[in-house]
Design a binder for these strands. Structure first.
Lengths: 219, 219, 219, 219
DNA sequence: CATGAATGAGCATTCATTCAT
DNA sequence: CATGAATGAATGCTCATTCAT
């Protein structure tokens, strides 16, 4: 259904999401900084945020607990950078699909679903942390991310609504509920997809088809 | 589509599913014991298992932390009883649907989906804890539950397979993947359903339809 | 000059200065609670607040660091209870002197100075902590105490002013500055008085005389 | 009473009072070295020695923590240089007053008090650190300073004693105690004098008068 | 049954100090 | 001279769990 690699590049982020405000701490090289983030992602995925100690991460990096604080401000900070990065990626996909011209509502939706599935599967560890430990963030930071989450919900709902009004999709289902089901199909992959056992292209295609059928119905 | 109240009764569990291991502790009255479990469910849902202290639960019950240990052995024990109870309920649904006679594969599947959706929506707090904090259980206990989880996967996959072979469902999709998508649709409700905002019957019906369409396709 | 033991009793305080709000912590017996406060006072005096670890206090009490948290909420909390208690005592003296009837401004002032000197000498450890570590309190708590500190300044200044206007004291000195010098004379004792080496009654009498002469001058 | 600017010059010190112990460290330019000391004085005054981190001082200087160690050996070292410098100044005053010829005991005392008051007011930040954080020095260094402190006590006590024996001061008060009260009057200014609110010359004159009256009495 | 004092291990975080580059 | 990464020990605090009364 879809092969153009819009998403592939979007992995380049993590930017300066930190804010980097603190004086006299001379942010370390991006290289090492990313290694830290990577290690955290892996370990948070394996043990969960709450059950991961700063020690665990330091151990994994082969440095002392105290040394880790050269790269992070707090443990929560690390989580935020992770989730914020993941969210930025996911948001990027929405932007790119939305910018694509000449697509009908169903085509746009299908492209969106495909891309998100690909991303989720490629980064299921990050996605897992995203959905498991989002609540461990402080309120402020949760809101910051939640705001952007709603954009996705709105965008998908609108595409379904358009399609229904254009007679392209059966209209017995509430577009908002259909949207929720689509997200379910996309997101849930992080709980069951296992590289090696499951083939990515097959899963992406099958899940996209499942979701689209659920929306379109027998028009 | 479905009105028979098979599920309603199944809330009565929590029994002695635990095995009630501890020697000579003179289990307290079932009444109070259930109150403890209920409080734990609510607070685990709100704060997450790892971020909930035994103190929090004791506070909620209006007793002292030390006193709580009359009702529980360990904190993990509490979690297990909770998850085990939830799982027993869910399993009960599978049993009941499977026992229903005279149903074709798609009819059985639809009944199953509907029942599970109803249960999930009625007990979304328990379900939430189930999916968030399952990993906090010790390995032994995880396996105990996981085994039964696979039964569900198998049963659903088999129904889809049957339907495909009988020409009742389009067969372009791998039954196992379709099964995953169905579970996604069912389970994910715990992340978005909010009583008050969403109407249960509408959601159950819509999600069931979404899932079934995804399986059946345009045969 | 002054012998009535108004002050002696005022050591009974520490009341419920804590607020004692937290649920389910069942404040421990006043007995032990006071022992904790006493130990803290002694050690804060010896090492200073910042250089005293919670461990130090626990060691002194013969319990574990963690156990100490049965009696305190935070380390700062302990400091506050100490300072607040000391302040309450000192304030009590002002109240009592102020309530004394039939005293001229100089008599009242002299009584006040004497009482404060007695208190400072009897509790020079607490007073020392009060003046050394006051700034370690959070802003809120500092203000709470500072407000009452000004009352003393005002009261003393007013007595001097009255005396000057009545021709009982030379009026070349600004009452506010004279007040500061009186406080200096009173408070500084905590830095040099050592029981054993110095005799309390002699010191109280001498310092009172010194301060009063400084105010009255050669009228 | 006193106008000769004996003290004014004495601010130039900090010399190599330290002994400059460290081997082969090639002391940096006096300029920069003094800036470091100044910054430390200010920050120690604001936050207290214990609550000031080496980082804080480095930040203030606009260099990195590690770089600061080009100018200091240890944090305590910095404190010592500060206190030692202040103490050298104060000692200088004693020397100068003592060298003044043709002064009676009371005149000498009055000159001393005036000078000390002027110094304390001009350098109340240093004085504040001196009295707050002296105890943070190691034992050796404390003794080194304490020895010279006693010289002041002795000198003042002797002047009072002389005056009493010469009938210039009432002799009901123990000269040692009177001396303590004089120090109280001088030193305490660092706790209340605020430039802007208080006028230096007025304060110096008033406090000197207060102290002298306390000693002389109504002879 | 309930209390509340105590345990002991663990955790996030800070910080003075060192040193290779 | 300056950097910045790393050290290692300490600190305040939390918490599941136990147990004598």
């Amino acid at each position: 259904v879809c092969d153009n690699p819009l998403v592939a590049k979007s992995t380049a982020r993590t930017k300066t999401a930190t804010g980097n405000g603190s004086a006299g701490k001379g942010r370390p090289s991006k290289r090492r900084d990313d290694e830290v983030l990577e290690a955290a992602a892996r370990i948070f995925y394996e043990r969960g945020y709450a059950d991961t100690s700063v020690q665990d991460i330091a151990d994994d990096l082969g440095i002392l607990k105290g040394s880790l604080y050269h790269y992070i401000d707090t443990k929560e900070d690390l989580l935020f950078r992770l989730l914020d990065g993941t969210h930025a990626d996911v948001h990027q996909i929405l932007k790119e699909v939305d910018a694509e011209e000449g697509l009908g509502p169903l085509e746009a939706l299908e492209l969106y679903v495909t891309r998100q599935l690909e991303y989720n599967i490629d980064h299921f560890q990050n996605v897992s942390v995203y959905y498991h430990d989002f609540e461990r963030l402080g309120e402020e930071r949760q809101k910051k991310i939640l705001a952007r989450r709603k954009e996705h919900q709105r965008w998908v709902t609108e595409r379904i609504d358009e399609a229904q009004k254009a007679g392209l999709a059966q209209d017995a289902i509430d577009p908002a509920i259909a949207g929720r089901c689509i997200f379910a199909t996309i997101i849930w992959t992080y709980r069951w997809f296992r590289p090696g056992r499951d083939r990515k292209d097959l899963v992406v295609e099958s899940c996209t088809a499942f979701a689209m059928r659920g929306v379109i119905g027998d028009v």
